[in-house]
Design a protein around this nucleic acid. Sequence first.
DNA 1: CTGAAAGCGCTTACAG
DNA 2: CTGAAAGCGCTTACAG
Lengths: 359, 359
Amino acid sequence: MPSTRKPTKIKPATLADVGRAVGVSAMSASAVLNGSRTSTRISPETRNRILAEAARLRYRPNAAARALNRRQMSTLGLAAVVDSGELNAYFLEVLNGVLQAAGKFDHNITVFTLRDWNVDAGRLADFCDGRIDGLILVAPVITDCRPEIVPAHLQFVSIHSNNPIPGVIDIESDEEAGAFEIVSHLLSQGHRHILHLAGPEGLQGAKYRLSGYQRALSAYHLSANAEVIESGYSTENGRCAIRAWLRENQGRAMPSALFCANDAVALGCMEILAQHGIRVPEDISIVGFDDTLAARTSTPQLTTVRQPLCQMGARAVELLIKPETAPQTLDTPIVFPTQASIRASVGRPSANPVMVPRL
Amino acid sequence: MPSTRKPTKIKPATLADVGRAVGVSAMSASAVLNGSRTSTRISPETRNRILAEAARLRYRPNAAARALNRRQMSTLGLAAVVDSGELNAYFLEVLNGVLQAAGKFDHNITVFTLRDWNVDAGRLADFCDGRIDGLILVAPVITDCRPEIVPAHLQFVSIHSNNPIPGVIDIESDEEAGAFEIVSHLLSQGHRHILHLAGPEGLQGAKYRLSGYQRALSAYHLSANAEVIESGYSTENGRCAIRAWLRENQGRAMPSALFCANDAVALGCMEILAQHGIRVPEDISIVGFDDTLAARTSTPQLTTVRQPLCQMGARAVELLIKPETAPQTLDTPIVFPTQASIRASVGRPSANPVMVPRL
DNA sequence: CTGAAAGCGCTTACAG
DNA sequence: CTGAAAGCGCTTACAG
């Protein structure tokens, strides 16, 4: 007998159903099954009968009714932009941290996706209609920041906000220090010509990474050797950028190392370099940024800068659920440390410089 | 002036507030602002005044109240197990498809994470308390499948369920055909000794992949050449499995190709082989399964089997929101086709066989 | 065209 | 120890 579609008529048991089955009021059932306060005492025997009937009827408190009454849903929102139709590895790391923390506090996570921060900023407030008790903005880039995007009755927290949003607590990682550390590592390995593929112009994170790069070179009195080309943040951006650079520099010496805007860009570069027979790290060293899972699965594995995205996500959840843990001043972001992840994609510079191949 | 924590007292405007401001009943406001049915006609002028006041007060219908009344939340659940504390690339692909489809139907997605399918199966029904209108199970492995795990009033859909769950529609991809196709590709390239690193014993997907491998060999009358070792599904599993195989087969000829349980395992193998100076694809060809983003970022890029995870996620959403699109029989899974993704990790077998290095 | 009433399922005072 | 009442914000019949 093939199973058939289930009739959608079956209704879950309510407190009234349980009460009726036992012969008491819904209120008594509520006190036993959901009541947190101990002031209302129920006799042990009716208590047991209520418990038994509730189990038999598979009673579960209705979340919508409870939310309406308590004015909170025990749910947090997570809003992110989907670039080119795909959430990326960066988001996945944040999501992991957010889910883990939310679980601890018995909260759910609802994911909202936007096409574009500026265009969809107005929709943010629409999500605050009782569905969620707080909203986490993942890497928002809201340049046109009108006050009405964050509603008066809910708290927002941002992670890696591109610019301050009034009333929104921001969580950052120290990207400047991370960039400084990783470029210093390259320098300490003997690299003197390090090409930086910078992130998208206008993005704060890209600026921090560039600034850390410059500060490291400066510390070695090598500012004159700085060479920067703008790339973006995607693998395809990385491919295009390095391809263009190779085309324009045929016959010249290759840099001995690449400092890429992020892991995705680094992977794009590795792909193109491999096509030209340029080996990593024998011929050229490469470092990325973010320490996404792609950094661990590439060949060779990527030296990169770890941002504690998981912890940052968890902190965002904590800020919303336990606002008393928030810092005094909302204007200064909470900053997490970054850390270099040293892997196989960095070696010593090769003795005889590699030349850019002629096409 | 530093911004201060917002007083959480501010309450969003209700229909009653809007009605009061205009001087009409909440019901009229409802008819204008949220009413879908046209039977209730409001005069154009009061209509406009209601609209104006609603905008001024930033009225938004309360989702909890509406859900209580309509008995649906416009939200779907997505449940997955977090292996070793991390959601993986496979999940991310499914999530992408699910979010995209949910957006089209104006539904939200709430993510639930479990530690272990069998242990936490009982919690599934707890989520069905009015928070969601349907639940998607991502790759569930519920061996001890008692009927009460799926509640009577909600529909569940599974993606890649390891075994049938009564009353749950399952969505599959044709893994057997995918394995057959990719192994046939290896055979067509001249490979005759193909080692299979099989997925975890007991998992249905691993069986399909093994079966496709065997069928392809059989079609070439090469069943006698089959060689299978059990690996798992993680990169570390892949490293261990290939390391063990190399240790036990020192001095013998290497297989000319590896068919790995999935991309992660393939990457683990590539890493270990590289350590032994064995080149891909010159010395040995490698194929994976899943076509996760790691397959595109490895060097060389991985030949693998693409499963349309995004589409499968989208179909799951559609099944829950438009149950009329469900197939007649729930017992037969919906099967999506798989497809070989040919990339650089496969070449022709080398003329002189590579030997397993002595340690 | 407009409103008073009842109800969705729960909880929070308040009586008995 | 237990229950009747009122309310959370919305909607759906039903009157006027």
